[in-house]
Amino acid sequence: MKPSKTAENIETKSRRDPFEWVRQKAAEAVVQAEQEAAETPRQMFLPGFDIGAFPNHLNRSSLIAPIARGRRKFHRQAAMVTRKDCVLEYTGEQLDEADGDLIMALIAFAQPFSLGAPVPLNRKELLRKIKPGGIGSTQYDWLYKSMKRLREGVLFLEARKPDGSTRYTVGKMESFNVLKELKYDGDSEAYTYTLDPRWVVMFGNREYSLIDWDKRMQIGRGLDMAKTLQRLLATSANPVQRYGLDALKAQMEYSGRMRDFRESLARAVRELERLEIIAKSCIEDSAKGKLQLAMWLPSSE
């Protein structure tokens, strides 16, 4: 096959311009490095937890949100809500808190294996971890759809330093799927899944949260907003945490009125208080006169 005229022009230009040649080789090296990172199995050890670890950048984003039933929209290379130290683009169906629970469980179940290696999944054992109560056809059907949704979801994440420069990227040249591979045997109804080795990067430098899973599983039905707040609280050790209502509303993909959002938020924080995830909370004015939610952790009283 003859090279394209564009490729010929680049090659000719690079021969004339040594700087262009260096830039071209550097770009090729980046592509090669990311491809190797996406294909090389890596071990990840997260000490001190059974289930409930998740990267902070994802916990602080709208990737997973407490969306209402029937409101699951499709994103196409959409810029998700994040903090200023992160850029996150996502293509796929909006993920909800149940999907988030599943991701955390899949990460925990993969602990004995190198990331990038196939992991056999006992679906009944997994559902017992993330779906308190009985297990039947409804739960199995949900698991099939959610696993498929995670396999199809594609991420690009760029973490930034305080000066705005790039710390690391995931999924820039080589696509990053929430699940890199997924196989399902309809006869045995067994799953085998593979996590992308680059999950290690997002968990690096202890940039992840450990969530109290027992309390998470006690959060009442219809109170997914409380689950979102629990993940957000886990990203910081500050005894008192404050979040602007406008930012929370955007992160939670809440499109309704602010008045309705505040009512839902009030129910969520009461649930966190009931489970002693927080000691108390209030809505107050920030120093800039904007409404914010303040939450006190139990040890801060």
Rank of each mutant, 00 (worst) to 15 (best):
F203T: 13
R42V: 14
S165A: 08
L157I: 02
I107M: 14
Q24S: 08
G70P: 07
M147H: 09
D285W: 07
E284Q: 10
E271N: 05
E273H: 12
T228E: 01
E20S: 10
V200C: 11
D17T: 13
N177W: 02
T194K: 11
L179C: 05
Q32F: 11
S299P: 02
R83V: 05
T6H: 15
L143V: 09
G134C: 12
A247G: 11
Q24T: 06
L46F: 12
L182K: 11
Y90W: 12
Q111P: 13
R128C: 09
A26W: 03
K280L: 09
R259F: 15
A159W: 00
M173K: 02
R69L: 12
A26K: 09
R149Q: 13
E207H: 02
P55M: 02
R167L: 15
L150K: 06
K131I: 08
L155Y: 03
Q251I: 03
Q292M: 11
Y243H: 04
E152R: 08
K124Q: 15
P112N: 12
R231Q: 03
K2L: 14
G164I: 10
G100D: 00
G256P: 06
S299L: 06
L232N: 02
S264R: 12
V178W: 05
I130S: 05
L58R: 01
A190M: 11
L248K: 01
I130T: 04
R267P: 01
V240E: 08
R76G: 07
N177R: 04
Q32P: 07
R221D: 10
S175K: 09
W142E: 09
